[in-house]
Design a protein around this nucleic acid. Structure first.
Lengths: 94, 94
DNA sequence: CAAATATGATTTATAATATAAACTGATTTA
DNA sequence: TAAATCAGTTTATATTATAAATCATATTTG
C-alpha cells in the first residue's frame, strides 16, 4: 500500500534542488541558492548528499576568477525522482 | 516558486496516517499499525503530534475490556493535507 | 491459581537529519 | 591596504524520527 519514500528525496530542500535540475539542464550554486532561498551552508550540505548518492553530478570550476559549482542531474537521479513521485502518489490519492 | 511543505505532514509515517484517515472515516491504533507497518512507539508518537496540531482527533476508549485508541481526521487536518498536496505539486511538475 | 504470554499502548533514549552559525580563502572596492 | 563581498565548506546545535524499554491489563497454559 504505502511504498517507502526515498529519504534522500523526501526533504524539502533536496527535492527543490532536484526539481530545478530536472527542468534546467544544469544550475550553479548561486542560482540554486536564489531559487530555493536556502542558506549557503544548508545548500552545500544537501548538494553533497545528492552528489554522494549519485543523483547529481557536481563540477567545481571557475567563472573568470571566481569559483563556480555547477550541478547536473544524472540518469540515476532522474529515475530516483520518478520513483519517488510514483511512491508519493500512493499517499496522496492522485 | 517552492512553497513551504508543512513539516508535520512531510513525514512518511504521518503522511500515511493522514492518507488512511482521509479514506476511512475513522481508524484505531491497531489498524493504523497494520496498514503502516510502523512500530507501536513510532506510531504513538506520530499520532500524538497530529493530535497536538489538531489535524486528527484521538479518542481513547474500550473494546470490551481492552483499550482502544480511535483516530479521526478533523476539518483542519483535511485542509492541511490539501494544502500540502498543492504545495508538493510545485516540486513534482504534476 | 501462579507464571508466562499477548495486547495495546506510552515513555525514554538514541540515532539520524536539518539547519544555522562560524569560518575560509579568494576578490573587489573604497 | 583595510574593509566588504562572494562562493562556498565545516562544525555545532537543534529538531526529528525511530527503536528499545517499559507499563498496565488481559488472557492463556501448566
Amino acid at each position: 500500500m504505502f511504498k517507502e519514500l526515498d529519504p534522500l528525496l523526501h526533504s524539502e530542500l533536496r527535492l527543490a534542488i532536484m526539481s530545478i535540475l530536472l527542468s534546467v539542464e544544469e544550475a550553479d550554486f548561486v542560482y540554486l541558492k536564489e531559487q530555493t532561498k536556502a542558506t549557503s551552508g544548508n545548500l552545500s550540505v544537501q548538494i553533497d548528499k545528492l552528489n554522494e548518492a549519485g543523483y547529481i553530478k557536481v563540477e567545481r570550476g571557475f567563472q573568470g576568477k571566481r569559483t563556480r559549482t555547477v550541478c547536473k542531474i544524472t540518469p540515476v537521479g532522474v529515475k530516483a525522482f520518478e520513483d519517488y513521485v510514483e511512491s508519493l502518489k500512493g499517499y496522496l490519492n492522485l
